[in-house]
Design a protein around this nucleic acid. Structure first.
Length: 576
RNA sequence: GCACCCGUAGCUCAGUGGAUAGAGCAUCGGACUUCUAAUCCGACGGCCGCAGGUUCGAAUCCUGCCGGGUGCGCCA
């Protein structure tokens, strides 16, 4: 492909074989971006010891055997034995031209894998919080990216749709009446419904008793109870789908794979674990003790697969999820986009499934999601200490964006402004989640994420909007800009070289499941474009060939920006 | 107590065992008869928590310590 780093690696490897013998042709040539050239090859330093020669002499030998005149303009040995490589401008231009003609913009198609991705996972009749927001946004970006790389992505929205709270929720639903305004709160403000149920449960012994009886009825499959349970789920789905629509994530009802889905499998799982000697009864509960998991005072920590009352908790269902994803979905990788605090629990559930032989051929991966903090450094809450309503938070982002758009673009009609505000506000929130490493905590700060400066969604959207403005003004479609690309100015060369990095970085995200790498790349690209934009007039270029080349570079940049943002799940407005 | 994660510029964060550790924000100084000045350019800013070790070479790998976060038996 057109990845310069890859091309250079192969050329240098060939040189290594030619210079030192075939057994050296497999050595990592250690090609890295360089501050003194485009790239540097650092293989000589590591090889010097193996060969018993001076690093600089080894480097000279590599250079003498390097056949790369068609790719590289300048080769220089410097320092203790670094080989600095400067690419030919015409080679970069040709690769950029290929990228422009490639519908995939240089992104490779990878060996197809089955990849279930567990993400979002809100609870029925409960408000989604910023933690859900983050797993939803990160998981969705991974799903989009892996799909684009050619994988068979199976979205698994592991809804919290089962458990003891449903006793009180169903009883509360009965009391307020199906179809009542109170019941409709589940669709709009689920925490108020949940808290009302909770208050009754805590305040009335009689209600609590009914709730407990209702749990038993639910678990034993009582049809009337099941119908009410399904009603609650339907109401909640309306809420989730409003959030998902506002967030522009790809989850649909078809992706729902809630806890209850595994109910029928749990008893069998426990029996089999016990038969295989993996699980033992301890203090009345069926437990799996795995080596390496100890808690306070060195006591072994169990994964409880059957509670002493005979019920099942999330330990059992999480064993069941991996079993299902491995045996039924034939997962090559099973991705869990879940909060970092659950790391130990997941390891135990997976360890149990593996011990039982239920995860053969499947690599489970935990994409750990760090906590979201407020500007005070604490878990994000409202001033009164209540958890923040996700819908209100998204609306605030849109409102803030609308205020900026209203001030900056009074010339646009209200509908257009509203649409831009929606795209910018939501894009800013999503990009903020995606621009930092998923496993670190990060500070939620509207002012920062909505800024036009820095590594923000709006900055990238603005770069794309300016490009579209160029084509509007020039009276042509981006597709009509076909070059040929010729690189003269430094800014043109730097932009073209940056464009070539798109495919590799997307592939890297697919391998490491780190979307923030793509964000960082897109930010670099937007910066490279902005510099180009400042220094290189496109429409007003001096002559036609330069104009055609710059238009092509601009079109390629738009393609990569829009495609990259799309992989992250962020929209690129036509204008801003 | 044990386990996992984290400690990088005043702040928020990047950083593939490679040369003089990078962005953005903030601060200061510049740039607009020119495709969107909401965008750019420059300056300032660092014992990469501390101490050892491995290595030709460590922010990166290993060990110990200090500081912060999280988890550790019947909620999920």
């Amino acid at each position: 492909m057109a990845d310069p780093q890859d091309v250079l690696a192969r050329r240098v490897q060939t040189a290594l074989g030619a210079a030192f013998g075939a057994e050296y042709a497999g050595t990592d040539p250690v090609i890295r971006p360089s501050q003194f050239a485009d790239y540097q090859a650092n293989a000589a330093l590591a090889l010097a010891k193996r060969l018993g020669r001076k690093p600089r002499d080894v480097a000279a030998d590599i250079v003498a055997h390097l056949d790369a005149g068609d790719v590289v303009r300048d080769i220089e040995i410097s320092g203790p034995g670094f080989i600095n490589l400067t690419l030919r401008a015409d080679w970069i231009a040709d690769r950029a031209q290929e990228l422009l003609a490639d519908p995939r913009a240089g992104v490779p198609v990878q060996q197809r894998q089955n990849i279930p991705i567990d993400y979002s996972a809100p609870n029925v009749a409960k408000e989604m919080h910023v933690g859900h927001l983050r797993t939803t946004v990160v998981g969705d970006a991974l799903a989009r990216t892996l799909e684009f790389l050619g994988h068979n992505v199976i979205r698994q929205n592991h809804l919290g749709d089962w458990g003891t709270p449903f006793g009180m929720l169903i009883e509360h639903l009965l009391e307020v009446g199906e179809g009542s305004a109170e019941a409709d709160l589940v669709k709009t403000d689920p925490n108020r419904f949940y808290q009302a149920a909770r208050a009754k449960f805590d305040g009335s012994e009689e209600f609590a008793a009914r709730a407990r009886a209702r749990v038993v009825a639910l678990q034993s499959g009582d049809p009337a109870t099941l119908r009410l349970w399904r009603e609650l789920i339907e109401l909640s789905k309306a809420y989730f789908n409003r959030i998902y629509a506002k967030l522009d994530v790809t989850l649909t009802d078809a992706d729902l794979a809630g806890e209850s889905m595994y109910n029928d499998a749990l008893a069998g799982i426990c029996d089999e674990l016990e038969e295989k000697g993996i699980a033992v009864v301890s203090e009345g509960a069926l437990c799996v003790f795995l080596p390496g998991f100890t808690g306070r005072e060195g006591k072994p920590v169990p994964l409880i697969v059957r509670k002493s009352d005979g019920g099942y908790g999330y330990g059992t269902t999480d064993v069941a999820t991996l079993k299902y994803r491995s045996e039924v979905l034939k997962a090559d990788r099973a991705v869990y986009v879940i909060g970092a605090p659950q790391a130990m629990h997941l390891k135990m559930a997976w360890g149990t499934a593996k011990a039982a032989g239920w995860a053969d051929g499947t690599e489970p991966v935990h994409v750990q999601i760090g906590n979201v903090l407020g500007t005070d450094g604490k878990i994000l809450r409202t001033r009164s200490g209540a958890p923040i309503r996700l819908m209100a938070l998204l609306d605030e982002a849109i409102e803030r964006a609308a205020k900026v758009v209203g001030e900056a673009r009074p010339d646009l009609d209200p509908d257009t402004r509203a649409r831009i505000a929606q795209q910018v506000g939501i894009g800013a929130v999503k990009y903020a989640d995606l621009s930092v490493a998923h496993d670190t905590e990060y500070v939620f700060d509207f002012d920062r994420m909505l800024a036009l400066h820095g590594n923000t969604g709006p900055y990238l959207q603005y770069a794309a909007a300016r490009i579209r403005s160029i084509f509007r003004k020039g009276g042509l479609e981006p597709e009509q800009a076909t070059g040929p690309i010729e690189l003269g100015e430094d800014a043109e060369r730097a932009l073209a070289l940056t464009l070539l990095g798109f495919g590799p970085v997307v592939a890297h995200v697919g391998d490491t499941l780190e979307p923030h790498r793509l964000s960082g790349y897109l930010f670099e690209l937007a910066q490279a474009f902005t510099t180009f934009y400042e220094r290189c007039p496109v429409l007003k270029a001096d002559d036609d060939s330069v104009r055609a080349s710059r238009l092509a570079l601009t079109a390629a940049t738009l393609r990569v920006l829009v495609q990259g943002l799309d992989l992250l799940g962020v929209q690129a407005p036509e204008q801003m």
